[in-house]
Design a protein around this nucleic acid. Structure first.
Lengths: 203, 203
DNA sequence: ACCTGAACACCGTTCAAGT
DNA sequence: ACCTGAACACCGTTCAAGT
């Protein structure tokens, strides 16, 4: 992994640390992510990471920011395609679940807002963007009459809850022998049906 | 915190460790849970915890088992009350969300199944019980005609996804200024509407 | 500007030894 | 049976010093 001639003293140590960190994160989870091991892997002194990240949490936050950025790109690509709004909503849900199960440790980093102080403002902003992407599509669906009236932002929270929760069940091995695809189809069916119209009777 | 006369050498060290660990977990999260600090707090040698928990993860797993046990008690109490099935379903959802946001670090311990080997079989079984509680109530609701046909276990997965996901959004500060109560009401409305009947048109 | 080496104060885990 | 003390191999973080 280490290479004595690698140009880490030339300014790209930060990116190299992030890349290696993401590999370790995906393979072994956040708990086994050590700055000293990262430095060792990159052939650099154990104090070098401290020049680019204030502390371990700052490195984790940077990974989470990258995760949200990529997630939002994928969500935008999913909603941007052709087809009726309901199909685009379903596609967005599937994109979210696909990303979440493929990058489970990254997602848990993205959603556990540690020490609300410094960089977590950026994280909350990026998370808010995810919800906004859904809210915009829901607003469009309302115009077309396929989604009930109501604040699109709040309806987006519900839609997000379904897909985020289902991904969590899948990652936690709580889906038993149900194939994720089938669970996803059912969840999206229930969600879109529930979004279509307000219930006639109140519980 | 330490007491030289405390009877920890009398057999209750395991329980004392778990109790203290849960306090620290709730206050500061799993990351700042150290066996050595626990031992210090209880006035015992740093190697003593090793007599009761094979390693740190075993202590975390034991906390998660306790969490699921209490969660399932609360879910059973919520579904057991009076009223129409839809009201009981809504009560169960609210009970889940209440527990989840009140014990966020514990919940993340419960759902992140580390090393699937030893004690996580018990964890998966307890998680499965949570879903079964919901599935039974959904089966009853089907008999009463207020929930669509389909495998109750799979419909329970969807119901769980909604409440688990909403709790995650709340804990992650992604609900912005939406009061959790209102988000919960809307989520349960969408869920129960979507569960009520299959959609006429397919997306 | 960027990195190193030593230092400090922590960790988890193991294991002989005590009672 | 249960706990201790020392030991080992790790950590994150800081800081003077090097280039």
């Amino acid at each position: 992994m280490a290479d004595a001639d690698a140009p880490y003293h030339h300014g790209n140590l930060r990116e190299a640390l992030l890349a290696r960190a993401e590999t370790v994160l995906t393979a072994s989870g956040a708990d086994s992510l050590s700055l000293r091991a990262l430095a060792r892997d990159l052939g650099v002194s154990h104090a070098a990471p401290g020049r680019h990240f204030r502390d371990r949490q700052a490195l984790l936050d940077a990974l989470a920011v990258g995760g949200f950025t990529r997630l939002n790109e994928r969500l935008r690509a999913a909603v941007g395609g052709p087809g009726p709004v309901t199909a685009r909503l379903a596609r967005m849900g599937r994109a979210y679940i696909g990303f979440a199960v493929a990058h489970a440790p990254l997602l848990s980093l993205m959603f556990t807002a540690k020490h609300a102080d410094h960089s977590s403002a950026e994280l909350r902003e990026l998370g808010h963007q995810s919800l906004e992407i859904a809210a915009e599509l829901i607003a469009l669906a309302q115009q077309e009459g396929v989604v009930r009236a109501g604040d699109p932002a709040r309806l987006a929270q519900v839609a997000f809850s379904v897909v985020h929760g289902l991904a969590a069940l899948a990652v936690g091995s709580l889906l038993e022998d149900t194939p994720l695809d089938e669970a996803t189809d059912l969840a999206l069916d229930v969600l879109l049906t529930g979004l279509a119209a307000a219930r006639p009777d109140i519980s």
